[in-house]
Design a protein around this nucleic acid. Structure first.
Lengths: 127, 127, 127, 127
DNA sequence: GTGGTCTAGACCACG
DNA sequence: GTGGTCTAGACCACT
């Protein structure tokens, strides 16, 4: 289980951790009851204060994505969604993006182009 | 020119104002040199602290979307639709969509597909 | 609005604060949208670290009993329950106490006596 | 003698064990000098770390509810039903009820009334 | 070993 | 002024 944080990311660090772990759980990379890295271990690995990790884990518990067993650690809770749930989720994400685009006067093509550009930043520079 | 803010919106109030005005300018609703509402007038209308409006207008000036004429007020920039500004706006929208997708374990391809599907609901089946 | 904490209480301090504020809100002492004491102010008053107050307020927000307005402060949210809700609440509390008592082999009379004793600790010592 | 623990119970595991055994002893289910299950046996049965059972038994000894005979095991105290212990247990139950009531803005009188009402559902209306 | 609580103190964004 | 985030470091309870 690899978790990374980016200090240049505008999201608070603890939110970045929440998002990373959420993704791992939602996608089934972390199956139910799988142990998350311990607070201290992750703090050392990411060179962060344990409190920051703790805050992230507390948030995950609040989101019902993880649970704590005293003296044992933190564990993943929810099962990955089935195909129908996943399809609905994808549609939701797309819908939110479209609303955001529309609100800002951005066309669909511009949005898709920008997404492509952001995720395939470098083409072949050679030749 | 109608500006609204939503206290439930997670964006800071002043950012909401910036976004509203930016959109109006970028989309041509506010033509070059058109006067923006005065700080005091807008503060009364939105029931906000004038400082908040000021902060938004300062940000608009910083973004080169407006300019101040002492004693006269704030005006939309006369420059041609600011391409750089528009590009930044598009990039922002794309970035938000990508964060949302990543958060939910949705891949870029799935996101783009869903956007396309949502906006081209009907497809010509003929040759 | 008076809030007190007792270091001898086994509950964590932040939980004590949550309980005090919750009670004030639930009982209508703090009407909807009434401002809670600011984090710093309460920290000074209770001689606690602001982080501890913050943790309590975050929990209140999680419980949907308070909300935060950036730069303005924290405010009470829910309205006091009506009579029927209140009666149901009281019945629930009593039911939980009875279950607890039964589980521990404590009779109803013993429970009531102990409650009376705990809340009227000193009778007239004179005469 | 059946002992169960519930991982969802907010009480620490070892406290749950103490409470179960305490109740059995206080209520006379475990007569004086009756042997408690061995640490290892109970650990296997409850799928717990033997250290946890040990901690519970140590607490029981501290509470003067059990005693250890080296090489033989742990036994219920022979003393007459421990009045002091029982009183402490009753006080604990009452204290929990009071915290719960206070948390929910329920007064002591309301709590006692509700308890009485719940346990004396029918009342003689005759003379 | 695990997570939970608390203190002290810093810096930031917001209104 | 407000709350939010983060660091550093301490002590505690639990397994």
């Amino acid at each position: 289980m690899i978790i990374t944080v980016d200090p240049h990311d505008p999201r608070p660090i603890y939110v970045q951790i929440v998002d990373e772990v959420r993704r791992a759980i939602v996608m089934g990379i972390l199956p139910p009851d799988a142990p998350l890295p311990s607070v201290r271990q992750l703090a050392v690995q990411l060179r962060l204060n344990p409190n920051t990790i703790s805050q992230a884990y507390r948030e995950l518990e609040r989101l019902d994505l993880a649970y704590v067993r005293r003296g044992q650690g933190t564990f993943a809770r929810s099962a990955p969604p089935n195909d129908a749930e996943r399809a609905a989720l994808i549609t939701d994400v797309a819908a939110r993006a479209l609303i955001d685009a529309h609100r800002n006067g951005v066309t669909v093509d511009e949005l898709v182009d920008a997404i492509r550009r952001a995720t395939q930043p470098r083409q072949d520079l050679a030749s």
